[in-house]
Nucleic acid binder design. Sequence first.
DNA 1: TTAAATAATTGGAACGTTCCAAATTTGTCA
DNA 2: TGACAAATTTGGAACGTTCCAATTATTTAA
Lengths: 348, 348
Amino acid sequence: MAKGRVTVIDIAKAAGVSKSTVSLVLQGSPLVNEGTRSKVNAAMRELGYVYNRGAANLRQAGAKSKIIGVVVNDLTNGFFAELAVGVDMVVQSAGFVQFLSNTSESIDRQREVIASMREHGISGLIVSPARATESVDFKPLVAAGIPVVVVVRNLPGAKVSSVVSDNQGGTSAAVEHLASLGHTRIAFLGGFPDTAVFEERLEGYVDGLKAAGLGFHEELVVSSAPSRAGGVDAIGRAMTMSDRPTAAVCFNDAVAFGVCDGLRARRMEPGRDFAVVGFDDVIEAQTAVPALTTVSVDPQGMGRRTAQLLLKQINAGKAEPESVTTAVRLVVRESCGAAQKKAGRKTA
Amino acid sequence: MAKGRVTVIDIAKAAGVSKSTVSLVLQGSPLVNEGTRSKVNAAMRELGYVYNRGAANLRQAGAKSKIIGVVVNDLTNGFFAELAVGVDMVVQSAGFVQFLSNTSESIDRQREVIASMREHGISGLIVSPARATESVDFKPLVAAGIPVVVVVRNLPGAKVSSVVSDNQGGTSAAVEHLASLGHTRIAFLGGFPDTAVFEERLEGYVDGLKAAGLGFHEELVVSSAPSRAGGVDAIGRAMTMSDRPTAAVCFNDAVAFGVCDGLRARRMEPGRDFAVVGFDDVIEAQTAVPALTTVSVDPQGMGRRTAQLLLKQINAGKAEPESVTTAVRLVVRESCGAAQKKAGRKTA
DNA sequence: TTAAATAATTGGAACGTTCCAAATTTGTCA
DNA sequence: TGACAAATTTGGAACGTTCCAATTATTTAA
């Protein structure tokens, strides 16, 4: 009992049929007689059989491994955790299982992790690439016919599918909204300038200014780490200028929270004395005080979307690279001052 | 090229040796001559060989699958994400790969996920059990000789190892600290009473009161969902009583943040008008305003510790169940009022 | 009834690796 | 130089599954 593993042969013997029949039952083939089927199932239950997927994959030697790999660059960031959960949902319900790994933005780690996943025979890969990932890293995968879809961060040169949110549209909408509230000095705060996401969001910011008939002032763009601490830093620098902004679109919610912290440290109340808008709509955004106006990207939905795309490609055998950008919407809450009945925003 | 997979036989042929030799190289055996080793390695690089772990596992038919399964009950909770990252760190550096899944507190999902992991031949399992998990769920695993360690939430009946934080010691320390600041009406806010963690933390709360020479008053324990919203709710109910508390130890940081929100909604400033202490020391605790005094459990360290324990058991072949409780420490920041120079805490 | 068709079942032969025992090469010492 | 030891290398035979072609049992149609 505690000896060897229970195999199809054991249950074949127990059920008085051949191993082939057992295999048929395992795959739910319609060829097998109802009676034998239940006899076999009973034997399986009896002996505590567990399917050996490794052996099966070996024979099938194909895209049928039922494992899909997911690698994210920062699991501790709620956004990515949420994304992974979204992926897991659809992947799981399609009978696949998720192989999740975290790279912590390390490109070496990413390489290791992907190599390991290949060895395990994943039938598809979803990656939110670490910074500075090069498209060549995915070459071997696509050459081997393994569908890959990158998510969140696009990878210019790579011939793989991608799912990114409408960064440009998001910040553009945020700026227009602030402008409609009467703001004219609107800053863009936080984020590292050398990333595709930053570029897109900044572009949207510029678009928004143009659409609102406002001029672009370079000094109103202040970059920083895309973190809460970075936000504190950015607003600090922004407030030193002579002609201060009265509102800010932030690179992401973490930065926005930092900006709020920084404002309070200066005895200014976000939403009353200064308007701030975030990006991502992390879970804390709605419960924070004040509730954060932000661009909602629904990471979980994005994860689901990504997984669906990947599954489609897996089933299609070999699909064309496809890129989808997911819609985004501005969620107006308190931090931009719009919810306040009083018309006045006081410039500090 | 795009035809069949490259196998050991292919590279054996290319390198002019036998498949056995290639296998030896693969395993880094010292038996093979340096010259042949490099010849083989060259051939592998040349042909783009990828190791087929499935086939290997099949033959080795043992605990050598190099996969360890990790299942958590709520990945979107930063605490668990952090835990998973900690696990991944040590697991990865030991040459294993992590198979992470999320159950969203669904016990059915948990069962599915674990079954799937078994089919894939994991050589060990780390579980943060979903609520209402029964010890019998792990029976088959341990019967099959697969090491299991539960983490965060203990599982009374199960003969498996566990790693939990010193919940009791944590709340006890928190209460004593509040008492030392002069508080006498200290509440315990938030959490579901039917969980082991709640029980332990509550017990610590009682211990702390006793140690400080304060009496236990049942009405000062108000449970709620262990979330931010739950915290708002709990403090709301706490403030309706005639003899109000002046301080609170919260079930976790999420609750603590909710309590802060609720206080502000009542025009009270946490840390000045009311002392609040959290539990977990989530990443936001230090940057929040006011910075949250909390019991730090270092989830990442806990994850590392857990992984180490599991690896030890895997290597030892079959190890005795072992339970470790990880140390915890009170991090005094602003929300309990201690950092303030002025002696006065005003009771509301 | 029987031939033909259909439904169920079944032995191998793979799949890509590791292990074993045995074979081969190389080196050492009298 | 021969004999022995050490260092390398090597063919199968597994591992647990699926697939294929072939066999056997059961219906159906005439």
